[in-house]
Amino acid sequence: MSMKKKLGLGIATAALGISLVGGGTFAYFSDTAETTSTFAAGTLDLSANPTTIIDVNKIKPGDWMTRSFELKNNGSLDIAKVLLETSYEVTDAKGDNAGEDFGKHIRVNFLWNEDKAFLGPWSPDDIVFNTTLADLQSMSPDAVANEVFVPILEERGGLKSGDSDKLYVQFQFVENDQDQNKFQGDSLKLKWTFEGKQGSGQAK
């Protein structure tokens, strides 16, 4: 056998030996374990009852109407805030309003939320906040929160899962001691949208 062939055979044999030694170096016992995880999102489910809070006719300046309704959290998550959005449409019966908004003459009195107080009983005539429908359009108040008189003893807002709040609201056609004849026969269609908001995230 020529020297060249012997040299080649020796190199190949050495390489094979190294690979076997190397392969043996990384042999080890092993085992595996598997885990599974589930992420299930909760739900926000806010309902209002009745869905028609007020339906009146033949009102005149000075009249007021007090109504109650219930907001309930039917979901699995707590609701931190219930924001109220307001919109309305006015029908000008005689076309003589000259751009004056009927909604500026309807005052809304938000009355005390008894479900948010540990002391009481409170009178449903206690007004927490009042404004006109016209001004309410640019606001998004928390519909279930009270003014905080005794912070330690009051739940400021929100609806826990499964809870409900009975709310009282008063509408008043304000008598302003001026000529309001232009509103005779007019009507106003009000839409309130309640939006439940979740609270901040927390460790689970």
Rank of each mutant, 00 (worst) to 15 (best):
K72G: 03
S37M: 10
Q137F: 09
V150L: 14
G22R: 07
A33T: 12
L111Y: 02
M3I: 06
Y28N: 15
G185V: 08
S37C: 08
G162E: 12
V21Q: 08
F118E: 11
T86Y: 04
E100Q: 12
S2N: 14
N109M: 06
R107N: 03
V108K: 02
Q172W: 12
A40H: 07
S37F: 09
F39I: 14
Q178N: 09
P61Q: 00
P50V: 12
D96Q: 15
V174K: 05
V128E: 14
K191P: 00
F29M: 07
G120Y: 03
A15R: 10
K166Q: 13
V148F: 00
L159E: 07
L167I: 10
D179I: 13
K191M: 00
S37V: 12
G75H: 04
V56T: 07
T38M: 09
F149R: 03
A117P: 06
V21F: 15
V21I: 14
P61E: 00
S138F: 15
G24Y: 09
F149T: 06
A27I: 04
I11A: 12
V21L: 14
M3Q: 05
G10M: 15
F183D: 01
A27V: 05
Y88K: 08
T91N: 13
A12L: 11
Q178P: 03
G120I: 04
I79Q: 01
Y88I: 12
L119W: 13
G120D: 01
D78G: 11
K191W: 00
E147Q: 09
D101P: 03
D186P: 01
N74Q: 05
Q184G: 04
T91V: 13
N181R: 06
N57C: 03
K204I: 15
W112L: 08
E85L: 12
V144T: 11
K197D: 06
G42D: 14
D101C: 03
D186R: 04
T132M: 02
T36N: 11
N49D: 15
I152M: 07
D125W: 01
L71Q: 02
D31N: 08
T193K: 10
I59P: 06
D163W: 08
A41R: 07
S138D: 15
V56Q: 07
I106A: 02
K160C: 15
Q172M: 14
D135G: 04
F194L: 08
V150E: 14
G24W: 06
D186T: 03
I18A: 15
N113Y: 01
Q184L: 08
Q198G: 10
D92N: 12
G201F: 10
L188G: 05
L84R: 13
S161A: 15
V90G: 13
L77C: 00
P124Q: 13
